[in-house]
Amino acid sequence: MKGFNRNFIKHITAASLVSVACFVSADSHADLWIIANAEAKVDDLSRSEVRQIFMGGTLSRKFTAIALPAGSDVRNQFNVDIIGLTESRIQAYWSQLLFTGRSTPPMEMASVNDAVRHVSEHDNTIAYVPEQTQLPDNVVVVYER
């Protein structure tokens, strides 16, 4: 009986540790929303479409990408989860496009609120924000990560 109890407690402890770990990791890795002005008339975008828009691909001529400042947590998460490259590699890539006249880097907004406001006020603009960000009626989520 004692042995059973000890095992039972061990299992409970392990299970609760695992669930706490899951909770913590989910929390530290909040999801991202890609938002667009409703006038852009896109219901949803794929990850590779988002990537092309933010990396100066052909689609970036149709949509204007809005970024957050280098070093911000949301931007770092966007770099890793959506683009799949480090900040410095992305900067190097953009210098290549900028100085060959192929494209210009996304416009930077100082804060998430500024980004949302800009998207709300400009057609065909796209930005990334943390999930559950308060959005005005004319801004829609087009991709969730």
């Binding site: 052909t58 149709k62 900067q91 190097a92 890539y93 210098s95 290549q96 100085f99 060959t100």
Partner: peptide, 29 residues
Amino acid sequence: EDNLSIKVGKLRTPFFMLSDVIDVGYAYH
């Protein structure tokens, strides 16, 4: 249009992957 871009003037010749950005060392490793 969105899919087409035309440049006219003096340009760097885009021979190789890095030819037109060779002066911008920051762009490569």
